[in-house]
Amino acid sequence: MKCKRFEEIILDFIEGKISEEKKRELRKHIEECEKCRKLYNDFLFIINNSKKIESPILEENFWKAKLNFIIEKGENYIHRFKPAYLGIPLFILTFTLVLLFKIYLPAKKYPYVELADSNYELLFSEDEIIKYVDYISDEEAGKIMEFILKETN
C-alpha cells in the first residue's frame, strides 16, 4: 500500500469503518512505514485529547426554566397580525370593482351620423375630431372636416 492511499483512508481506519482485509493491509503498512505510523498516532492523539475538552453539561431544570420563554415568544409570533389578512380581501375587492366598471359601465354613445357612402357610425364625436386634428396631417383633417360638414348640411 502506498502512503497516499493510506492517507485517503486513514480516517475510515481510525473510525473502524473499513473491511477486515483493508484493516490488515493498513496495519501492515503502519508497521513498515514510519511516516504513516507517526501520522496515525498523531491523529489519534489529537482526537482523543480533544474529546477530553468538553463543554459543561447543564441540568435539565436549567433548560426547562428557559423553555417557557421560547413557547411564549413563539406563540406571540404565531398569533401576530399578518398584513396578508387585510391585503388579500382588499385585493379581491379592488379587482371586483375594476371588473364591474369595465363590464357594466355604460359605453359612451356618440350621435349617429350617416356618412355619405355608408351607414357606419362615427367612432369619434365632432368635438373630439377637432380636438385631435393637430395630430393628423392637414390633408387628412380636411377630408374629415369635409365629411362632417357635408353630412351636417
Binding site: I46, N49, S50, K52, I53, E54, S55, P56, I57, L58, E59, E60, N61, F62
Partner: peptide, 30 residues
C-alpha cells in the same frame, strides 16, 4: 461553576500539569 447548574463538570482536566498543557494547546488550536 458555582453559578451554573452543571450536571457534570467534565471539564476537570487531569491534575497532571503536562496533560493540562497539552489540552490547553489543543483547545487554542481548535
Amino acid at each position: 461553576y458555582e453559578n451554573l447548574s452543571i450536571l457534570s463538570s467534565k471539564n476537570n482536566f487531569e491534575s497532571d500539569f503536562h496533560n493540562e498543557n497539552i489540552l490547553n494547546e489543543i483547545k487554542n488550536e481548535i
